[in-house]
Structures are given as structure tokens and as C-alpha cells.
Design a protein around this nucleic acid. Sequence first.
DNA 1: TTCAATAATAGGAATTATTCCCATTTCGTA
DNA 2: TACGAAATGGGAATAATTCCTATTATTGAA
Lengths: 145, 145
Amino acid sequence: MQNQELRMTRQRRVILEEIRSFDGHPTADEVYEAVRKRLPRISMSTIYRDLETLCDHGRIQVLEVGCSKKHFDADTKDHYHARCIRCGRVTNLPVQPFSYLEQAFRDLCDYKVVGHRLELLGLCPACQKAEEEREAAEDITDAAK
Amino acid sequence: MQNQELRMTRQRRVILEEIRSFDGHPTADEVYEAVRKRLPRISMSTIYRDLETLCDHGRIQVLEVGCSKKHFDADTKDHYHARCIRCGRVTNLPVQPFSYLEQAFRDLCDYKVVGHRLELLGLCPACQKAEEEREAAEDITDAAK
DNA sequence: TTCAATAATAGGAATTATTCCCATTTCGTA
DNA sequence: TACGAAATGGGAATAATTCCTATTATTGAA
Ligand SMILES: [Mn+2]
Ligand SMILES: [Mn+2]
Ligand SMILES: [Zn+2]
Ligand SMILES: [Zn+2]
């Protein structure tokens, strides 16, 4: 978090608005695609730079979930997420974080603890559906043999 | 996990041995550096390919912690880790995973839950020490003004 | 054994996500 | 309005990983 004031440029405002109105937790390129509809000349550099700046100023948070892409979240309060192991979708878990865990774990290692992350892994509804359809198709193929 | 038998080539054996004797949870390039001392002609492709194969056969596991690099673990039992936010070091947490969490969280989202991940974040002993030294040096600089 | 089919490897190119660089533009303010 | 600082766009560079392919090694009949 920086103490300097954040200059709210057109790009930053639109990026922030798009993250806030996004259904879920967009990645940088999902932010890019959304913002591009309103600011067609925006560059990927600006997206990444402004995402970082917005993080630094506490207007959004970055979710470093266990996959290759960063996800961004307009909700800056600490909270847990579920992640789809198939499509990477990230969803909120409506539960209060277990802050006592950090105290409890403090003695288990020689780290200076600053936080923790809990992630539920599974298949999102869309991927469950796709899975079922794939299995059904497979059964038909098998039966045809 | 594959059901086919794993052909234990020289490369795979050495990779496995090096991960097992590694103090910690090596990344792909740390495995590469270690293996290279014994098999100087090994290629990075083989490292990545064999790491994946060994995972598929349940001989190791891959840790997808919240950072850009994958870490590998010869201990295939489910367990938690702490990660240093400065240097990326990954350390075991000697505690039994809370399996009941998955059942408890099942109703909080519409995912088909297959697992969970809990990660403690902090500064490893080495980075704590470096931090302290940096601060001490800063104090001297400040005092000199 | 010998040979052919199969599997694995080395080396490098390609890909993906992200960061870096810099000339140009925009902004805040004097 | 004019100046210096901050931000932007566009593209190059980087880092981690995956993909491709010609070569090499292994297996298991014949
Ligand atoms: Mn969230
Ligand atoms: Mn471990
Ligand atoms: Zn999904
Ligand atoms: Zn560290």
C-alpha cells in the first residue's frame, strides 16, 4: 500500500469499474477484453501497470491462486475462494477466514507468519455439466461397439 | 495417476533420487541443477516430462503454491506448507490436514469438491535474518544524516 | 541374437503470462 | 499557457513451461 494519492485517470477508472462489475474474478486478459470495449486503444501494459497500482493503493486485491494466472478481486477484504481445477474459475466462499489458524500454526514452523490462504478445489457447475455430457457421450460410444 | 507401468529409465531414477534427497521442495530448475551434476547431458525437456510422468504415477506430487513456479515434493501424502513471500521457499507444516473442511465447505458453493489447499505465508528464517540486517543498516544510514 | 515396434531423450522452437523500456501524451498547477 | 511530473501505448524482453522432431534406447517377438 502506498501513501501517495492515486491519480484516477480514465484508464484506471474504467479498469476499476470493469473489475467491480465483473461476475467473478477476472484475469488480466479478461480485464483487458472488458476494458477494450470501452477504451479500444488501451494497451496490455496499462492494464498490468494499473492493476498493480490499484493493488498498491488498496482499491483491489490480487489473488495468487495455485494456477498460472493472477486473478483480480474488487473485494479487498480477506476471504477464501474455491477454484475450478478444469477451467480456472475462482468463486468466493461465504465464510469468515479462520484467523486463529495463523496463531495456531506459528509454533509449527520458524516462519514469521504474515497470513494464510485457504483454497477449495473442485469442478465448477459449468465444468460438472460438461463432464457429465462427456461421460454420457462416452457411454453411447462404448455401447455402439 | 496412470495404471500403466512406469519404465524406470536412468534419467527418471536420478530425478527421483535427487528430489528425495533435496532439502525442501525443489522447483524444476533446482531439480535440473541437481540432476545435471550426475547426468550432464540431461535436457530441461526431460526434467519437465519426467516430473510430470512421476506425478502421473504417484511417485511425487507437484505443489501449485501461490507463486509462479511449480514445486515438487517426494512426499505424496497430503500435507500443508508454509511459503516464504520473499524467496519462495516452501516448508512442510507438521499438522494433519483438516479433511472435515471439505465436507463443511461443500454447502458453501456449488462446486464438486475434490480437495483443498492451506498455505501459511510468511518470512523464512533466512529472509527474517536478511530483513533484520537491512533494517539495522538503514538505522545506521539514518543516524548518519 | 536380431529386428521391428514402441517409448524416451536431447535440443531447440513455440507459447503463455508478465515485466520492462522508452518515445509520446496527458495532467496538475504555477 | 507553459512546464515538469506522471501515465500511456506499443513493442521488446523475460521467465516458466510446453511442444516438436530427429535421434537413441528398450522391449519383446521371431
Ligand atoms: Mn473474491
Ligand atoms: Mn512437502
Ligand atoms: Zn470450471
Ligand atoms: Zn525466504
